[in-house]
Nucleic acid binder design. Structure first.
Lengths: 129, 129
DNA sequence: TACAGTAGGTACTAAAAAGTACCTGTAAAA
DNA sequence: TTTTACAGGTACTTTTTAGTACCTACTGTA
């Protein structure tokens, strides 16, 4: 049995939600159930390999559920577990802070683009203009 | 001028506070001003090189202040900028979630150790027994 | 005099993370 | 009949991140 030693709690949190793809995957899943292909399309640039790999790790850590339908072609749904939902507020805060930071940097003249704002993508307000 | 493109805000946040050492450094600095040596002692295992490197990046991103006293031997103090303070709640949440997660895993029989709990280390309650 | 403490820097190496390319197998659509 | 979509897997390579070792320069202490 291998032992894990942490100095402070944030190390464990980052082990679980850190990395290039996990926070992105989780920020999508906090809106609800998604199929593999939906996730792949929602996260441009992620490869099938990285997507599967990260999903497996999140599953192993008890953060997400993997529901496999025994049918052909295959259908697999991913969603946050109840425990994973306890990360929702943190994930939301991380998204919002980043959106504001990007806005701030833009104002400073940095050439930086944000494709999907959290709330905009969730609620496009089609008639607002 | 190089361009940065993000799909969702959390990518930018993680660019700034992610990695092995940055969240740890920030979780220490949110308690107040610290000198280089204090940080090095507070974060066992970090090397001088990584500490300096991460501090420079955080400084470049406007998260921390670096105050150099022109004296010998040198004295340098690090602290969160006002902007950096806007991360305090997130950092606190990340620490607390991790502490609870470690507790949860311990209960499940995992061999896992947390050396410094956020509140305990900040307020040792010397007469409480 | 030799060493510890102060706060770094730099070149090189090791390890971890991510990416590329190519594979499975079935069903439905072009 | 070939292609696409579905949800993967695996071997290998590249990139990124982190670590090691050794350097500066000055002061105070043993």
């Amino acid at each position: 049995m291998k032992q894990a030693i942490y100095n402070i709690g944030v190390e464990d949190t980052m082990r679980i939600i850190g990395g290039k793809w996990k926070p992105i995957i989780l920020c999508h899943l906090k809106h609800g159930i998604m199929r593999t292909g939906e996730l792949r399309r929602a996260i441009p640039n992620i490869t099938q390999k990285m997507l599967t790999q990260q999903l497996r790790e999140l599953e192993d850590d008890g953060i997400i559920n993997r529901k496999v339908y025994s049918q052909i072609p295959p259908k697999v749904e991913y969603s946050l577990t109840d425990y994973g939902e306890s990360l929702n507020k943190i994930l939301e805060d991380l998204c919002v802070w980043g959106e504001k930071d990007i806005e701030r940097r833009k104002q400073k003249g940095e050439n930086i683009i944000l494709l999907n704002k959290e709330d905009v993508s969730a609620d496009p307000l089609p008639y607002a203009d």
